[in-house]
Structures are given as C-alpha cells and as structure tokens.
Amino acid sequence: MKKILFTLILVFSTVIYSQEKNQPGNNDLFSPVNIKKFADYLFCQKDYLRAADEYERYLKSIPDDTIEFKIALSYSAMCNFSEAEKRLGTIKNTSNFFVPAQMLSLKTIFQEGDIARFRNAYIAKDSDLSIPKDSGIALLYNFSSLLTEASIHNEDDFVENFPYQERSRIKYFYEWKENPPEKSPLKAALFSAIIPGAGKFYAEEYSDGIWAFIATLGTAYLAYDNFNARHYTRGWIFSALAAGFYAGNIYGSASAVQIYNTRIRFDFVNEVKTFLEDKNYFLKVFDFCK
C-alpha cells in the first residue's frame, strides 16, 4: 500500500510540478493550448505575421471563430486587406463575430481604396443586415461620399450625420470637396503668355517666376539690340533663346499648376486618412490584449 502511494505521489507530483514550471498548459509547447497562448502573446506584441501563422496552426486542431476573427485582424493590421477580407468572409452567420466581421470586411474594402466597391458592398450588406444609421460603418459610408466625384447637395444634412464633436472637421472636408482650392493650368499658361513668369507666380513658384521673367525679357532685348546693331547671327541666336524661354515658361507654368494641384490633392487625401485612422474609421476597437 505504501509503495503504491509513493509511486502515485511520484507520478502526480512530476506532472504537476512540470506543468507549473512550464507555465501555460502542458509540457508540449506545440499543444493547441500552448500554440494559442503563444499566438495571443505574439498578437499583443503586434508581431501579426507570426501571430497569424500560429493561429492558423491552432485552427488545424480546433475550429474557433474568435481565432478566425483575430487572424483577419492580424492581416488587416499588416495592411493585407484582401487576405483580411477573405478571412472575414469565412466567419459563419451563426457566430457572435458575424456582424463585426461584416463591418470589418467593409472597412477593409474602404482601406483598400476602392470607394465605389465599398459603397456598393455597403448597400448590399445594408439590405441584408439593416445596418443602423448611427452605427460606425454607416458613418463611414456617409463619409465616403466625400471621396467620390458626385456632389453632395445639402451641407447641413450631410454634416449632421456625424457626432457633434466631429462636425467642424467634417465641414472642412466637405468644403474642400465642393470647392477644392485647385488652380487652372489654362489660366497659368495664359498668364505666362501675357507676362512671362506670371503663370509661375499664379502656381506659387515665385523665384521661378522672377527668373523666367528676367530670362525671357533679357534674351528678347539682346535679340532686338543685336538686330539693331546688325549682328544678325547673334540676333537670331538670342531670338531662338528668347522663344525657347517664352514657350518653355508657358508650358512650365501649366505643369507647375498641375503639380500644385496634385500636391494639394495628396495632402487632402493624407489628411482624410489620418483623420479616419485616428477615429478607427468610426468603428469599435477590438482589444483582445486587455
């Protein structure tokens, strides 16, 4: 009896001690429980690629919709939106994560930058799920109209869709969309045709404008002066230079305005992106690391 008791103590204590020493779960570091614990750790360390790999490994043993959702979150965090969308699509409608997955799926389409597809997908999902009008994704849908070509007719109606504290920013974005502070390349070319360098001033390239003015008028004067002094060869050389400066300046002014417009559009898109990222695209933040 004593022997049996000792043997039992020996065996049990070995198992219990070893589990305690080895922290999570059992001795096998690759058991599903330990894989999940390790994956959760990687996920919270923001090592998303490895976390996704480990979650995939876990899913081979145990199906789990939370893990599916976390894999999608990992891909989304790595800006691999197409993979995130694919993974979100696998979450079944019986899952608690079905609705959040659908919302997150819309967000990933938006993040991919395909606004038209996002709007169509939203309409399709709205008819299936009846998305509440005050939900985050509905706000994102409303916001997305700022990024389309179509005009928004009523500013007040549009702005009132958003929470009070966001309205001043939304109003600013609305005004930018309706009246973008872009400049006309045609005007720039015309200005430069009338006064060399004026188009560059219009495009806010002041030093280029001054140089264009001096170069065009200077060479034109030299051509005139040399013709007057009957130095015809030099006269033609300076005429050709003046014509080159004049034509180049007209073309350069139109180009400068195009560059100016591209720059301000780029800045606007960046501002919008920063704003949306700051607000997590109006969606709830899933924090699995608390």
Partner: peptide
C-alpha cells in the same frame, strides 16, 4: 519527486 519534476 523533485529531480524529474525539474528536469522534464
């Protein structure tokens, strides 16, 4: 009891 519990 102790040795295997630590070594494993």
């Amino acid at each position: 009891i102790l040795i295997p519990s630590y070594s494993l």
